[in-house]
Amino acid sequence: HMTFVALYDYVASGETDLSFKKGERLQIVNNTEGDWWLAHSLTTGRTGYISSNYVAPSD
C-alpha cells in the first residue's frame, strides 16, 4: 500500500469519511475511484474515505 501524509486537518462530513489531522500518516487502500480515496490511518487505526487533495506522498 502507498503511504501518504495529511497536509491539512480534515473533519469527516459523513459516516464513510475519515477524519484526520495534519501530519497524520495514511495508507491508501483504494485510489481508483476518482478524487475520494479509501484510506487507513496509521495513527488512529480507522478506515474511511479521504479527499486526495488533502494528502501528499510521504516518500
Rank of each mutant, 00 (worst) to 15 (best):
T32R: 10
I50Y: 01
F4M: 09
L18N: 01
L7V: 05
V55K: 02
L42D: 05
R25K: 13
L26M: 07
P57I: 11
L7Y: 04
S52K: 15
A56N: 06
K22T: 06
E33V: 11
H40A: 07
P57R: 08
G23P: 03
G34E: 08
A12E: 03
T43F: 06
H40K: 15
L38M: 07
T43G: 05
S51C: 15
I28G: 03
H40I: 15
Y54N: 07
D9C: 04
V55E: 03
D59A: 14
N31F: 15
I50S: 00
T43C: 10
M2S: 09
T43M: 07
S41P: 00
R25C: 14
Y54C: 15
S51A: 09
D59K: 08
N53T: 12
S52P: 15
T44R: 00
E33G: 12
V11P: 04
T32W: 08
E15Y: 08
I28V: 11
T44H: 02
F20M: 04
W37K: 03
V55H: 03
A6S: 05
S58H: 12
T43Y: 06
V55D: 02
L26W: 01
E15P: 14
D35C: 12
T32E: 10
D17E: 15
S58E: 15
N53D: 12
R46I: 07
V5M: 06
D9T: 06
L26N: 00
A12D: 01
Q27K: 09
L18H: 02
F20A: 01
A39C: 04
T3P: 05
V11Q: 11
L7E: 04
D9Y: 02
N30Y: 10
Y8T: 08
T32S: 12
G14T: 13
Q27A: 09
D35K: 11
T43A: 11
W37P: 01
S13R: 13
G23I: 03
M2V: 11
Y10C: 10
A6V: 11
S51L: 15
Y49A: 02
V5A: 02
P57K: 10
N31P: 10
G34H: 08
A39S: 02
K21D: 05
Y10M: 05
Y10H: 09
V29I: 15
T3I: 15
G14D: 10
L42N: 05
Y49K: 05
N53G: 10
T16K: 14
N31Q: 14
A12R: 04
L38A: 01
S58D: 15
S19L: 06
G23V: 02
L26E: 00
R46A: 09
N30P: 06
Y54T: 06
E24M: 01
I28N: 05
E24Q: 02
D35T: 12
D17V: 08
H1I: 13
G23E: 02
T32I: 10
D59R: 07
G34Y: 06
Y8S: 08
E24W: 13
S58A: 15
S41A: 02
S41F: 02
A39D: 01
A12V: 04
E15Q: 10
R25D: 05
H40W: 07
H1V: 13
H1M: 12
G45Q: 04
T16R: 13
H1S: 12
M2D: 08
W37G: 00
A39I: 05
P57D: 07
N30A: 10
R25W: 13
P57C: 08
A56E: 11
Y54V: 07
V5I: 14
V5Y: 08
G14F: 12
S58L: 15
V55M: 06
P57T: 08
A56R: 10
T3V: 15
S41H: 05
L7K: 06
Y10T: 03
Q27H: 11
G23N: 04
I50M: 03
G48D: 01
Y10W: 06
D17T: 08
L38N: 01
S51P: 15
Y8D: 07
R46W: 10
D35M: 10
S13P: 07
D9R: 00
V29Y: 10
N30C: 12
T32G: 10
T47P: 02
G34C: 08
S13H: 12
N53E: 13
G34D: 08
Q27C: 15
M2R: 12
I50F: 01
D35Y: 08
R46N: 09
I50R: 00
W37E: 00
D17Y: 15
L7I: 08
S41Y: 12
Y54D: 08
T3Q: 10
D35G: 10
G45H: 07
I28E: 00
A6H: 00
S41M: 01
W37Y: 05
T44K: 00
V55Q: 02
K22I: 06
L26F: 15
T47E: 07
E15K: 11
S52D: 03
Y10V: 08
I50D: 00
H1G: 13
G48C: 04
F20Y: 07
Q27Y: 14
R25L: 15
G23W: 05
R46M: 13
Y8W: 10
T43L: 10
N53S: 14
S13V: 14
S41N: 13
E15F: 07
V5N: 02
S51N: 15
A6C: 08
H1T: 13
T3A: 06
G45S: 03
G14E: 11
Y54M: 15
M2F: 09
L38F: 10
G34N: 08
L18S: 01
T32N: 09
S13C: 14
S51V: 05
M2A: 10
S52E: 05
M2L: 12
L38H: 03
P57A: 10
G34W: 06
Y49F: 10
N30V: 10
H40C: 12
A6W: 01
N31S: 13
T44Q: 03
L18F: 07
Y49E: 03
G14R: 15
F20R: 00
P57N: 07
T43Q: 08
N31D: 10
Y10N: 05
S51I: 09
P57V: 11
Q27G: 03
H40P: 00
L18I: 07
D35N: 11
W37A: 02
W37T: 02
V11L: 08
E24P: 00
G45R: 04
T47L: 07
Y8H: 08
T32P: 08
S41V: 02
N31A: 14
Y10K: 04
I28L: 08
V29Q: 08
L38S: 03
T44F: 04
K22V: 06
